[in-house]
Simulated assay, not measured.
Amino acid sequence: MGSGLDCASSLVLEALQYGMAPGPEPFDGAASPLGMDAESLLREARRLRRAGIIRRIGISLHPRSLGGASALVLAAVPGDRAMEYARVVSSSSGGRSKHSYVRSFPRYNLWFTYRARGPESLLEEIGGLLSPLGVDDYVVLTTARVCKLSVKYDLERGTSWSQPGVLPEDPPLLGELGVDRALARRLQDLPVSRRPFRELAAEVGETEEGLLDLVGEMFSRGAAVDFGAVLDPEAIGFRHGAVVMGSGGAAECERVATLAPEATHAILREPAGGARWDLRVYFVIQARRREDVEAAAGRAAELAGIGERELAYGEGGITL
């Protein structure tokens, strides 16, 4: 498999990514095709979690359902201190920047995501974060639409790989479904146990049935978009990852989501504050080999009808 993982561990990771569904005993469904019992799979899942290979197991949420206003910020910082800036942005954002990365891109070498309290305060909050650092050359690209979000890694193919499909454009806010932020965090990182929803339900004063009904509603209405294990790409040997920026609009973004299984994200972005920026379709591809990233990016762009495109490879960063 080329990742330092033995075959058995790789099969377990595949099952935990692709073979789980929300239900009373989600690990049972993943264990059966492996010829394992659920307790054996749970032991392996706990071991891989302790080793840092599995980041979490649970639900992935539609970013729109979190509320506020989100953006990708591209900033120009001194190259020899770029990683230092990434750490400072991550630590001083009050949890509003979940990803802060150094990328190989002309002019703008620090890329970070940011979720503001609302669209009216987005630029002010980002300026307040960067101004004390002496950073005044940056572009804010707001999230106009999220067409795909499914971060899975095919350990046999050696590339990111997930089912195609376009996410709903306007899912309900979590609060409208009765889900507060504390519960949302727990649903994203469930207990690694035989009946994780029963365990979580007891903690929050709910019944297992009631909590599963709520999770079912979250999926049916588009607030929840995926379920299973989320892996650390570095730990499984996926050391090459690029954000692909392409020309186009909503139609091209949707085609990436439906025609490029290697894409983990497909997002349409709009420049804020009157900035001029023509590359609006963003998708992410990760692989063990750089040439596989290049090949997948080329296929995706061709299938989606994207003409102009650029790739920005990651050179280290912070994920919360």
Results as ranks from 00 to 15, higher is better:
Ala21Ser: 14
Asp154Arg: 03
Cys147Arg: 07
Ala31Gln: 06
Arg64Glu: 12
Arg255Met: 04
Ser220Cys: 04
Ala31Glu: 05
Pro171Thr: 04
Arg107Glu: 15
Thr143Ile: 14
Met218Ala: 13
Pro22His: 07
Val284Ala: 03
Val243Thr: 12
Val192Thr: 12
Ser93His: 09
Ser160Asn: 05
Ile57Ser: 04
Ala250Thr: 02
Arg290Ile: 07
Ser10Asp: 05
Asp278Thr: 01
Gly237Leu: 10
Pro26Glu: 13
Pro171His: 08
Pro168Tyr: 09
Ala235Tyr: 05
Phe227His: 06
Met36Trp: 13
Gly307Ala: 03
Met20His: 08
Pro119Cys: 08
Ile57Leu: 15
Glu39Asn: 05
Ser60Pro: 03
Glu169Leu: 09
Arg96His: 07
Leu174Gly: 01
Leu303Pro: 03
Leu211Trp: 06
Pro26Ala: 13
Ala297Leu: 12
Gly4Ile: 07
Val281Tyr: 00
Ala45Tyr: 00
Leu303Ala: 15
Thr319Lys: 11
Ala272Glu: 11
Val204Gln: 09
Glu199Gly: 00
Pro233Asn: 04
Val135Glu: 10
Val293Trp: 02
Arg288Cys: 02
Ser70Gly: 15
Ile54Gly: 01
Arg280Lys: 15
Glu44Trp: 06
Ala144Tyr: 10
Val88Pro: 02
Leu212Gly: 01
Tyr153Arg: 03
Leu149Thr: 02
Phe283Lys: 05
Leu123Ser: 15
Arg276Ala: 14
Gln286His: 05
Gln163His: 07
Gly94Cys: 13
Ser150Arg: 13
Ile57Gly: 04
Ser60Ala: 15
Asp232Glu: 15
Val88Tyr: 03
Gly216Lys: 08
Ala266Cys: 11
Gln163Asp: 14
Ala86Pro: 13
Ala76Arg: 14
